[in-house]
Write a protein that binds this DNA or RNA. Structure first.
Lengths: 206, 206
DNA sequence: TTATATCATTGACATAATATCAATTAAATA
DNA sequence: TATTTAATTGATATTATGTCAATGATATAA
């Protein structure tokens, strides 16, 4: 029989079971990391039989990938921020702000990000998901570079897509270092330094 | 009884067994990748009983780590190349050459590098080994930056260690992309673009 | 209301890999 | 030749995964 929300009692229960598994997954992944977390433990915590998790998720990877969705969305938001500066100074300050935002977004979910970092190395599926984020950022940055080149603000003897890639990697890796606590510098300092190198280069003369 | 080379027949045989295992490992790792390669298969190829590999190597990671040694050495060589330019132009061309060399070193062992990339994500031990290479590069680059800053060639408002890190990551990730065939641009073009951004920055004005 | 069909859940099972270790085999020494 | 020492082995315990036939619970039809 159908209820107000269009879901039968059976469907509601199933949905709840799925949710329980996701919640349990979150706890277990955060506690154990991706590798050490087992389906047995997740099912135990969700009060479901061993086989149940496999009804809702093809495997551990898929369960985890679903838990990543929130963060993936946030990253896409950051990637698609507008960038149309009219002066070099404006470009610099916008870039600095975006670097900060990118790293801050990761820090907002620091513990989950640590597990994601681990999972990228282990799970094909997670790796693919992260690659998509990466590709999106690189595409956006390429667009931004082409824009400032067309506007005459930037050097045209540079291959936009290549530099976009390099610049993104610089940001991503620094982000991981900060998330993992391997770089302790203040976020503002990091953003400033990266933005400076990017807009102006390391050397003095042209 | 001891022989001319100071090794008993027994020791020689043991050494040969070890070598057989390493050779078999190389073949199997290249064929299967790190994850899919099994100790069973490696022992089979080496014509040794299953337990034998564990006599010589604590586990799969350690066997692989030993196979990495060659490449690790080569990378250290690249990392410790001298850098003492006297002009900005000289700095640029030296940097460009070093980027090229770094990526070329990886391409010289492309297939092994692919497996290493995979193994970094999976094995703690391999990850640690690669981190050491990374740390070494970053330390060297930091030194180089400090040198050109002291020599008055480079801007002093930049934190050497931070920029060294960012610059290294840009190089490393591009290297992986090229090794994995995800970036197909000519090596010379890549080196030029990276070196240009690094020495001069993306934007025109100061 | 009862019978039947459908869907959710279960846990035992097959599979596949790891690392260990007591037993075996081969070499060195007495 | 006998004894000790070292190298090798493969059966075994362990630990995870993913599957599936059986069971239990809910929905639908008679």
């Amino acid at each position: 029989m159908n209820h107000e929300d269009g879901l039968s009692k059976r469907q509601q229960k199933a949905l709840q079971t799925r949710l329980n598994l996701l919640n349990a997954g979150k706890v277990i992944f955060l506690k154990e990391g991706f590798q050490k977390a087992t389906m047995t433990e997740i099912n135990k915590r969700a009060n479901t039989g061993y086989g149940t998790a496999y009804v809702y998720f093809k495997n551990k990877d898929e369960l985890f990938a679903e838990l990543m969705e929130n963060i993936v969305e946030k990253m896409y938001d950051v990637a698609s921020m507008p960038f149309e500066p009219t002066t070099v100074e404006e470009a610099y300050s916008q870039i600095k702000a975006q670097v900060r935002l990118f790293i801050q977004a990761a820090l907002d979910e620091q513990e989950t990000m640590k597990v994601i970092k681990e999972a990228i190395g282990i799970s094909e599926m997670v790796e693919r998901k992260w690659s998509q984020i990466r590709a999106r950022f690189i595409a956006e940055i390429t667009k931004d570079i082409t824009f400032v080149q067309t506007a005459g603000m930037a050097n045209k003897d540079i291959e936009a897509s290549l530099i976009a890639r390099g610049w993104y990697y610089m940001n991503e890796q620094l982000m991981w270092d900060i998330v993992l606590g391997e770089v302790v510098e203040d976020l503002t300092i990091v953003a400033e330094n990266l933005a400076l190198l990017y807009t102006r280069g390391l050397y003095k003369v042209r």
